[in-house]
């Protein structure tokens, strides 16, 4: 197993210094704001946990939080299975691999506000292909007016934007499975489902942890795309936490509540990600996973 060596700290030191500079110092500033109030002129006085109480009790925060949780849940339920399915069906060799990889990765490398712009245009009923086609087909579709349409547009946009990440991660997990496993499974006469359940899924666990964590975190922090496409509307129906937060911090310049909300927001992400991480890596640590199950 791994050897105990405290000198390894020296190898970690550069990362620590860099991240300390870009994470700890700003975080201290946020904590500082969250417990103080100001009347301008840089005069601050202590208010304790007042802002936290105010944020936690406000209707506005609850609603934004529920919208965000719902959005993340929908996203994960669609993108993870779809990503696995596409990865399983991808070719393993030949020219098809490169074509698939390059084309699928394209949406990932488009700046987020451009993604928003693309979908804003694509879904418009007057000049967009999607909106125009849907209207011609007789659907009453308008994402700027109708809440359901706005949500459907955002979900499809996110599926378009991010499913490829899940596909790429699963695919890299799949190709690392040694051929011997499949041969063993074939000799045992395992069904297609058994191969997936007992060979491919356990071997993909590590990349799936990454995929689920990344997708949860990023969908929970989503800002730019919905901001560009719907601007949080119609009404407040697509105002997610980040949009609400930026509105509060920069739009209204309510530093205290905004800082308190930031910390609560951060804490929620932390807790949920920690649960994901422990559950999924604990299964990883069990000695029976992988090799033992392949027969």
């Amino acid at each position: 197993m791994k050897s105990w060596n405290n000198k390894a700290w020296f190898l970690v030191l550069p990362v620590l210094l860099l991240v300390a500079f870009s994470a700890i110092v700003p975080l201290i500033t946020v904590v500082n704001y969250s417990v103080q109030d100001s009347f301008g002129n840089n005069e601050f006085y202590w208010v304790g946990l007042e802002w936290f109480k105010e944020v936690l009790e406000s209707e506005r925060f609850h609603n934004a939080l529920m919208r965000n949780l719902l959005f993340s849940a929908i996203i994960l339920l669609i993108e993870i299975p779809l990503g696995i399915a596409v990865a399983l069906a991808m070719p393993r060799r030949g020219w098809g691999v490169s074509v698939c990889l390059v084309l699928m990765a394209l949406p990932l490398l488009i700046p987020w506000n451009v993604v928003g712009t693309i979908w804003q245009v694509f879904a418009r009923v007057d000049i967009g292909l999607l909106g125009y086609s849907l209207t011609q087909l007789g659907f009453d579709y308008n994402y700027t007016q109708d809440v359901v349409d706005a949500w459907v547009t955002l979900v499809i946009m996110d599926v378009w934007h991010w499913t490829s990440l899940v596909v790429l991660l699963c695919y890299s997990g799949l190709v690392s499975i040694p051929q011997a496993y499949y041969q063993a499974a074939r000799i045992d006469g395992a069904s297609r489902w058994a191969v997936f359940r007992y060979i491919q899924l356990p071997k993909m666990r590590r990349v799936l942890v990454i995929a689920v964590l990344l997708r949860f975190m990023d969908s929970f922090m989503i800002y730019t795309e919905p901001f560009v496409v719907t601007g949080g509307g119609p009404g407040n129906s697509t105002t997610f936490l980040s949009i609400d937060l930026v509105q509060m911090a920069i739009g209204q310049f309510d530093l205290g509540p905004a800082a308190a909300m930031s910390l609560i927001y951060f804490l929620i992400i932390l807790v949920v990600s920690w649960v994901f991480y422990t559950v999924m890596t604990q299964q990883d640590a069990e000695p029976s996973s992988g090799r033992g199950q392949s027969s």
Partner: peptide, 27 residues
């Protein structure tokens, strides 16, 4: 290697990946 606080450190690093950028804009 295993070293003092390695697991905590690893998770702490990941927490920074989880930080919403919106939180950090002003600081």
């Amino acid at each position: 290697y295993r070293f003092l606080g390695d697991k905590h450190l690893f998770f702490w690093l990941l927490t920074n990946r989880m930080a919403p950028p919106a939180v950090f804009v002003l600081p």
